[in-house]
Design a protein around this nucleic acid. Structure first.
Length: 312
DNA sequence: CGGTTTTGACCCGCGC
DNA sequence: GCGCGGGTCAAAACCG
């Protein structure tokens, strides 16, 4: 990683300074698209998201060009679809199957972009999980040492919430206000782009995220969050823009109730809204619009569908 | 010097 | 049982 990029991701106020601002994904059940605010919208994108193409960031910043209607509309189209599926329930959490293992096999999933699973869920998965998040290993020097299997995982029983979203960005590791420490990187099968693994640096926070680039559309970054932050965004990181975001979100949330995807927001907001209200520094500039993606396999389906829709 | 990134090794689950 | 691929560890390197 270049020093520029590193600095960008960790210390700059505006994570996109010097870059084209990333854009965010809005998925329609039948026509997933990546909405790009900075580039001319493709016909497909325009059709799928007609009104005012905007970035989520704009929405969150209460930009004058976006009103709440468009904001909620953006969510409605992705979260209130009649075809929404909720594959992240207990029956599918054996999930590894359709989940992680398929990332690298996207060349296969792309062969069936019309799979019935190609829809997006915004339902809560608070108690859901990826069976693999329990893989946290104890330190080698733990009490377990001596049997040669000290690395053996003490599998946690807690289920972690997990969801992913696509972002059209040149930046791999998009700033979300929290501080992350990279703990691994792996080559993705059938993809020239590696997958990076990050963990929240907060001592007790076990939230992880994975970041990888779609090989089918290198401009698309796939970010998967796993777990829920149990702390505020580091106040030293960002300024008042965060407050703009939080207040906007909370107002919208309060006024529209169930129409708003609390669940996905809750992953990034402190658990108490009152806490939030009192902490205008707690949120940061770039809050992305994210949609819960059941698993990587579906993600890839969506990406491939999108790619297809972009094809001449 | 402390925090972060890099990277090879290791572990584990799954499919065959 | 074996091989493969994903996920994690941890020492070394790097950086401000």
């Amino acid at each position: 990683m270049s020093s520029n990029e590193k600095n960008n991701s960790q210390h700059d106020y505006d994570p996109f300074r010097g870059f084209n601002r990333p854009t965010f994904s809005f998925f329609d059940d039948n026509n997933p698209c990546i909405y790009n605010q900075s580039a001319a919208p493709t016909p497909a994108a325009t059709q799928a998201f007609d009104p005012s193409y905007m970035s989520f960031t704009d929405c969150l910043n209460g930009g004058s060009v976006v009103d709440y209607n468009s904001f909620s509309r953006a969510f409605d189209m992705s979260c209130s679809s009649s075809n929404v599926v909720s594959p992240m329930d207990d029956s599918t959490t054996k999930t590894k199957k359709i989940g992680m293992s398929s990332v690298g096999d996207n060349h296969n999933t792309s062969e069936n972009p019309s799979t019935p699973n190609s829809s997006v869920s915004c339902s809560s998965n608070e108690d859901e999980d990826s069976s693999k998040s329990k893989k946290d290993k104890q330190p080698k020097g733990s009490e377990d040492q001596g049997d040669g299997k000290s690395k053996k995982v003490n599998k946690a029983t807690k289920k972690e919430a997990r969801f992913a979203f696509l972002t059209k960005s040149e930046i791999d590791n998009l700033e979300d206000g929290y501080r992350w420490r990279k703990y691994g990187q792996k080559a993705v099968k059938n993809s020239p782009y590696p997958r990076s693994y990050y963990r929240c640096t907060s001592p007790k926070c076990g939230v992880k995220k994975r970041v990888e680039r779609s090989f089918q559309d290198p401009s698309v970054v796939i970010t998967t969050y796993e777990g829920k932050h149990d702390h505020h965004i580091p106040t030293t990181l960002r300024g008042h823009d965060a407050g703009i975001f939080s207040s906007s979100i909370m107002e919208a949330s309060a006024s529209k109730g169930p129409a708003f995807p609390h669940e996905f927001l809750s992953h990034f907001l402190p658990s108490s809204s009152s806490d939030l209200a009192g902490n205008t520094n707690s949120m940061q500039y770039n809050q992305q619009q994210q949609l819960q993606i059941p698993d990587y396999g579906l993600l890839q389906d969506l990406v491939s569908s999108f790619t297809r829709s972009q094809a001449p």
